[in-house]
Simulated scan of single mutants.
Amino acid sequence: MSGKIKVMLVDDSAVVRQVLAALLGKDAGIEVIASAPDPIFAMDKMNVQWPDVIVLDVEMPRMDGITFLKKIMSIRPTPVVICSTLTEKGAATSMQAMAAGAVAIVTKPKAGLKNFLELDEGDIVQAVKAAAAANMRHVKSMTMAGLTPPKKLSIDQVMPASEASQTSLTSMAITTDKLVAIGTSTGGTQALEVVLTQLSRTVPGIVIVQHMPEKFTAAFADRLNSICDIEVLEAKNGDRVIPGRALVAPGGRHMQVKRSGAQYHVEVIDAPPVNRHRPSVDVLFRSVAKCAGRNVLGIIMTGMGDDGALGMREMHDAGAETIAQDEKTCVVYGMPKEAVKLGAIDKITPLSNIAGLIEAYGRKHG
């Protein structure tokens, strides 16, 4: 993309449109070309000039944001940043939008909007820039697959019955000493769905940092839990990392892994952002390197920036197996690229292979 990033704002609040236009307009690389109070007006303006990025509300008159998003994705896939309220209802609706192809979320409170957005203006600008860099062909392919969730693998498909009967007594003892650590950002909500819906309940415990605002991670985990064979939870302080369970770091807080004997548990902590993120992938990965060493499979997936690259190198140096999602299947090839540049990665692989590699890791002895 050459020149400025052309942005359209679609929100039924005139105040939101005004504040967002002013904040985005401060960045020399962004130009707000149009705004509209609802999707019907937006389509009229987009027929004149199509934007590079759309900042979209989800609850609007005449046509809701999710319907509009699906229409855009079917006509001309375009990066969309969801601008949604910090409410449980807003979070759940925004998760539907992410599943339909949106690439990022910006939060807006019900009150104190102007001050809130001005305090978080860096996040808004970064979200728009990350969206502009998104590989929309891959977003569309994941979204089309996501409309009908991937067929779940049964345990017999993952491990033949004869093999399972011989190893069932020992596999749990082995997997309780292993864990899988995943870090991801832009495009990660769809990518994690692709991976987690294919996993069986015998996989090692999984800990995940997905860059996402407060309140939205609970809705995200609930949605994944409803479509996966494994249990997916928003992490709470003290939760155990056990086979068949994935713990998602809560938005607005960091998550670390700690070890007690042969068991792992998580600590959810309040601390300043790291690499401009809270939760931070580096915080999780560094804790895993310290407490689990070689008993870890580290995976870094689609996302903008370099959060997680340093932590991945620390895991790699501690003897962990490390995987990066390849450029072709990333929505944004930022985080994996930085980890590769640091020499932190053992294997670069397409998104479609990651679930199988997790299953294979879980079956390894020693």
Rank of each mutant, 00 (worst) to 15 (best):
Lys4Leu: 05
Leu9Cys: 05
Asp11Thr: 07
Ser13Glu: 07
Arg17Ala: 07
Arg17His: 08
Leu24Arg: 03
Leu24Cys: 06
Leu24Met: 05
Lys26Ser: 08
Asp27His: 14
Asp27Phe: 02
Val32Glu: 05
Ile33Phe: 04
Pro37Asn: 07
Asp38Gln: 10
Pro39Gly: 10
Ile40Ala: 14
Ile40Trp: 02
Phe41Ala: 15
Ala42Gln: 11
Lys45Gln: 15
Asn47Ser: 13
Asn47Cys: 06
Val48Asp: 14
Pro51Asp: 09
Pro51Lys: 05
Val53Pro: 05
Val58Trp: 05
Val58Ala: 08
Met60Asp: 12
Met63Arg: 13
Thr67Trp: 00
Lys70Met: 11
Arg76Trp: 01
Val80Leu: 09
Val81His: 05
Glu88Pro: 02
Ala91Met: 12
Ala91His: 13
Ser94Pro: 06
Ala97Ile: 08
Ala102Tyr: 02
Val106Ile: 15
Thr107Trp: 01
Lys108Ile: 13
Pro109Asp: 09
Leu113Val: 15
Leu117Trp: 05
Glu118Gln: 14
Glu118Asn: 13
Leu119Ala: 14
Leu119Pro: 00
Val125Cys: 04
Val125Pro: 03
Gln126Ser: 14
Ala130Met: 03
Ala133Arg: 11
Val139Ser: 04
Lys140Gln: 13
Thr143Cys: 11
Met144Thr: 11
Thr148Asn: 12
Pro150His: 06
Lys151His: 06
Ser154Phe: 03
Gln157His: 10
Pro160Arg: 06
Ala161Glu: 14
Ser162Tyr: 02
Ser162Met: 07
Ala164Asp: 01
Ser165Tyr: 03
Ser171Glu: 10
Met172Gln: 11
Ala173Glu: 13
Ile174Met: 11
Asp177Phe: 00
Asp177Thr: 15
Leu179Ile: 03
Ala181Met: 07
Ile182Phe: 05
Gly188Asn: 07
Leu192Ile: 06
Val194Lys: 11
Gln198Ser: 12
Val203Cys: 07
Val203Leu: 09
Gln210Ala: 11
Met212Leu: 15
Pro213Ala: 07
Lys215Leu: 15
Thr217Lys: 13
Phe220Tyr: 15
Ala221Val: 13
Asp222Met: 12
Asp222His: 12
Cys228Met: 12
Glu231Ser: 14
Leu233Lys: 15
Leu233Thr: 03
Gly238Ser: 08
Arg245Phe: 00
Pro250Gln: 10
Gly251Leu: 06
Arg259Asp: 03
Gly261Pro: 08
Gly261Glu: 07
Gly261Arg: 09
Glu267Ala: 14
Ile269Cys: 08
Ile269Thr: 15
Asp270Met: 07
Asp270Trp: 00
Pro272Lys: 04
Arg276Asn: 10
Arg276Asp: 01
Pro279Tyr: 10
Ser280Pro: 08
Val281Tyr: 00
Val283Ser: 06
Leu284Ser: 07
Phe285His: 04
Arg286Thr: 14
Arg286Gly: 00
Ala289Gly: 09
Lys290Cys: 01
Lys290Tyr: 02
Gly293Met: 09
Asn295Met: 03
Ile299Gly: 10
Asp306Asn: 13
Gly308His: 03
Met312Asp: 00
Arg313His: 12
Met315Asp: 01
His316Ile: 01
Asp317Phe: 00
Thr322Ala: 09
Thr322Asn: 08
Ala324Asn: 09
Gln325Pro: 10
Glu327Ser: 13
Cys330Pro: 05
Val332Gly: 05
Gly334Leu: 01
Met335Lys: 01
Pro336Met: 10
Lys337Pro: 00
Lys341Met: 11
Leu342His: 07
Ile345Asn: 04
Lys347Cys: 10
Pro350Thr: 11
Leu351Met: 04
Ile358Leu: 10
Glu359Asp: 12
Ala360Arg: 14
Gly362Arg: 04
